[in-house]
Design a protein around this nucleic acid. Structure first.
Lengths: 364, 364
DNA sequence: CTGAAAGCGCTAACAG
DNA sequence: CTGTTAGCGCTTTCAG
């Protein structure tokens, strides 16, 4: 029942010309007499001819398609990033196809779909927070225009465009320090991206600069999801000297942490402050609204595309790292430290004024 | 500087065998002696050989890739749908690539990227609220396994999977009628999808069943975005006998309508009730929260993939339409009708009890 | 078990 | 202006 597919040869013979002439007539390349062209076009129309782009591509013709590899497509952050990338690609006169990579996309070599993408696209954008290090070598060896977005694990010969992580995390931690917190917990994400490590480094920078000895117990690793945020926070709150503030490597874990705090009958931010990372849409709407860090995803997306396009045109070949500043958004989930509050609620009043100031700043 | 790409021939000659033997050794098809296989694999490893899937596909080999055409990729609704589709495709053991179609993807024939997608994928899923009717013929003539999602304009030979629109819209309209509204406005979306028309039909069904003569002025068309919701609502509120309730064909327009209502100093729902469509995440968080209709996007996605996979395996060839029920979510943006309220606020009390009941139902 | 030949559909080269 | 030849990288015949 396979309906036979019309090829250029059918059109050519139907029009009484050779295949190459038909090709020229249809593509407008080279000289073809007007009558011949008309004849060919008519035949193509009649037969409903559809050029086989796969075959054309095999001849090495550019596809003008830019491929984006994504994993964790579901994440709202990814989504926002994709929107600007999509726009930027269109502006560059290119087309865009997206491959939502499974975790198995590269096991000692790219999987077949990934290779297909490499075959079809003129350039690749890798937006994969979870990219594992051992994949890098494979990708580097592909020797095709490729740009990494938000991937910062190991030094690579591939260009990287990303949001600032370390300094921003230091700033968030400093915000907590300024509110009087000293025992600050850090909930990291999975290791397959450099982001978690960079954010932890920033946290440690700020703690170190404040002269605070960080207990190893304060640092735990989750998996960038709400459930792990919950369990990690629960573990921290169970410590003999529990942290009075939690800095989570993303908002989703921060939501989980807030759940855990409330499950223990503690209040946010009166008893425990919470900071997230990403500024998801939902973060404005939690109770209280979440203090968090916001990357300029639009700038990151634009730049990544620009960088890739330059490489696709043969402009640039060197590695490079481009970092955009990340903004601290102060909201209601952070307040002044009152370490003894749960035991002695009365002590709360002493710093009411400072707290109110902090709140106002969070109104934004 | 183009690093030369390793082909099967390089591997073959390096291993001292023919290309076809190398192919067999690498793919595990046909008989190859263990030693030969080992030799070939070693050579492939050494040269970092990467099979060219485009070439393979040209021989007609299945790619196990399912293509999804999307437009309005940015929309949260689309996003949610994509998440379930992605999962379902993985479960089917296939891979997924997404083409975010520009509006020009099909002008008297598919554009080149669309054709490339058709060439590389075993089946296509079209999730395009904006799909114009004239494109349908082109897609139908491609004679490849294809399933339409949420597209219901004209009868088509392609299978369709969608959420219930007409009956759900009737139900929403009935909800407003039960609250005492009689002058109910309808703000439709763009025409490029059957959704807007189906929703209007449902609205008319309910109005007709209630024996209400619908003034043509009550029905206006927007563009499924917030701005058009605003201007359409503004137009309706300017009518001599302005509607007391607005039913919008999607949530985004409902948000715009709420803006317009407030801009006129009117209250929601005391003066004007609003109903949307989609139940976007944000709809829970407007003030007041939006009454809206929610499609079972997970079921729709699952079914669409299942339907497509069946067709890819040659199981089914006939057209079919599959419709899933859509749920009315009652929230605070709808209340009892008090047509004279703006002029005589005191009249409000008469139906306070009914209103309270409605509110409780909305707590959900 | 392995190879030679043929060809998927298309388009650069070079002739006519 | 048009056609012939050749070949992209791979895999399906069909013979060894």
């Amino acid at each position: 029942m396979e309906m036979k597919v019309i090829t250029l040869n059918h059109v050519a013979s139907s029009a009484g010309v050779s295949a190459i002439t038909a090709s020229r007539a249809l593509n407008g390349t080279g000289y073809v007499s007007p009558e011949t062209r008309a004849k060919v076009q008519a035949a193509a129309e009649l037969l409903k001819y559809t050029p086989n782009l796969v075959a054309r591509r095999m001849k090495g013709v550019r596809s003008n398609v830019l491929g984006v590899f994504v994993n964790h497509f579901q994440s709202p952050v990814m989504h926002e990033l994709m929107a600007t990338i999509s726009l930027a690609v269109r502006r560059a006169g290119l087309d865009l196809i997206i491959y939502d990579t499974p975790d198995t996309f590269c096991q000692g070599g790219l999987n077949s779909t990934a290779r297909m993408m490499y075959g079809m696209c003129d350039g690749l954008l890798l937006v994969m927070p979870r990219l594992e290090e051992r994949y890098l070598a494979v990708l580097e060896s592909e020797s095709r225009p490729t740009v990494l977005v938000n991937y910062i694990a190991s030094p690579t010969t591939l260009p990287v465009v990303q949001g600032e992580n370390r300094k921003a995390s230091a700033r968030a931690t400093t915000h907590l320090l300024e509110l009087g917190h000293r025992r600050i917990g850090f909930i990291g994400g999975s290791h397959h991206t450099g982001q978690s490590a960079a954010r932890r480094a920033g946290y440690l920078d700020a703690m170190g600069a404040a002269g605070i000895a960080v207990s190893p117990q304060w640092i735990v690793d989750g998996a960038f999801d709400r459930a792990s945020g919950y369990s990690c926070a629960a573990g921290l709150l169970d410590l003999p000297e529990a942290p009075t503030a939690l800095f989570c490597a993303n908002d989703d874990m921060a939501f989980g942490a807030m759940d855990a705090i409330r499950a223990r009958g503690l209040r946010i931010p009166e008893d425990v402050s919470v900071v997230g990372y990403d500024d998801m849409l939902a973060s404005r709407h939690t109770t209280p609204p979440l203090t968090t860090l916001r990357q300029p995803l639009d700038q990151i997306g634009d730049r990544a595309v620009a960088e890739l396009v330059r490489r696709m045109q043969g402009g640039e070949r060197d590695a490079s790292v481009c970092e955009f500043p990340t903004e601290l958004i102060v909201r209601g989930s952070t307040g002044v430290c009152r370490p003894d509050a749960p035991m002695a609620p009365a002590a709360a009043k002493k710093s009411a004024k400072v707290q109110q100031t902090a709140r106002l700043a969070g109104a934004r």
